[in-house]
């Protein structure tokens, strides 16, 4: 475990907690894409299949449980909570996220490190995570108004993956045979998707103006 990875995991945890906090306290999910949350729940469900078979460390198991429980609770809140669901704007959140699932699955069948069910599901979860933010970014472009918590959520989510890239660079230079092209490329693609959001986030922060994404 290196500092980049720990910082990455903590940032990822913070992003999920910020979101849960927002939904739980103000009982609203305005500006949040349910599609992205469903994709993230699927990412964790397909990535942590080894939760009960491979014990890595208490930290690893605990974090997996937290991510699974939090991502599914967020989906539950937005879909079923009697107050929160009213603030979900399904007419705006129209990204056809099923069109993301199938290509990622087919790609995982073709490009993977080993042709086993577990490995293919793990690879699928990597590709899906890379594109899972798209419905949320599209929704932000549409609604134009980004409230602070949503902006922080997306920012933390992008920061976590950027820190993971530093972690991969660090591990590449410190651990022999640590080469995972699939992880690195999908992680890089994911981070690049956030690049323009980061740009506008920093602009708004620097000029101390409300975060606006160009249409």
């Amino acid at each position: 475990m290196n500092i980049f990875r720990l910082a990455g995991d903590m940032t990822h945890l913070a992003s999920v907690l910020v979101l849960l906090l927002k939904i739980h306290t103000i009982k609203s999910c305005a500006g949040i894409s349910l599609k992205t949350q469903e994709l993230y729940a699927l990412v964790f469900a397909t990535r942590y299949l080894d939760l009960f078979t491979d014990y890595i460390s208490l930290y690893n198991t605990l974090m997996k449980l937290i991510f699974l429980v939090s991502s599914f609770s967020i989906v539950w809140y937005i879909r079923h909570h009697k107050i929160v669901r009213r603030s979900y704007d399904k007419d705006q959140d129209t990204f056809r996220h099923y069109f993301l699932v199938l290509p990622c699955f087919l790609l995982a069948l073709v490009i993977n490190e080993k042709f086993t069910v577990k490995e293919i599901m793990w690879t699928f979860s990597l590709y899906l995570e890379a594109v899972a933010i798209l419905p949320q970014l599209v929704l932000l472009q549409r609604t134009r108004n980004i409230d602070n918590l949503t902006g922080q959520y997306v920012f933390l989510l992008g920061a976590y993956r950027s820190l993971y890239i530093l972690n991969w660079i660090y591990r590449y230079f410190t651990e022999p045979h640590y080469v995972h092209w699939i992880t690195w490329i999908s992680g890089l693609v994911q981070t690049l998707l956030y690049a323009d959001f980061f740009y506008y986030y920093f602009q708004s922060w620097k000029n101390n103006v409300k975060l606006e994404l160009p249409a």
Partner: peptide
């Protein structure tokens, strides 16, 4: 068969 290293990253 060399067991491939478990996925230790989240």
């Amino acid at each position: 068969v060399k067991e491939d290293p478990p996925k230790d990253e989240l």
